[in-house]
Design a binder for these strands. Structure first.
Length: 99
DNA sequence: CGTCTAATCCCCT
DNA sequence: AGGGGATTAGACG
């Protein structure tokens, strides 16, 4: 970079093949050791930087997804507990206080 | 120095 | 409005 060649820099979007390959690697391991990264880059005809960036974004977005899922589960659990507590309170209203 | 995360940018759809 | 690659700022070994 630096001197010329911005037409190549404008190009974005990886091919399906590249994406799938990266995905497989990601499934195997969410981290990349440097030699593996270099090998992948060579294998796919990408810059090692691009592979690194891909994994960084992948990890970040994967984490976001996990967090959202956790949030949904927590909210569902919370809802259930609240409903249950409401039912218990209703029962207390019906029960005799003394015995 | 290289790499990581988090946030953001920028472009495309 | 959202997805996806690239960039930036800040932390860490």
């Amino acid at each position: 970079e630096g001197a010329g060649g911005d037409d190549a820099a404008k190009k974005r979007r990886l091919s399906d093949e590249q994406a799938q390959f990266l995905e497989m690697s990601f499934r195997k391991e969410r981290k990349l050791e440097t030699p593996r990264k270099v090998q992948l880059a060579a294998e796919l005809g990408l810059d090692t930087k691009q592979v690194a960036v891909w994994f960084q974004n992948r990890r970040a977005r994967y984490k976001s997804k996990l967090i959202e899922e956790e949030f949904s589960k927590l909210r569902a659990a919370h809802d259930a507990v609240v409903v249950h507590n409401c039912r218990l309170e209703a029962e207390v209203q019906c029960n005799s206080p003394t015995g």
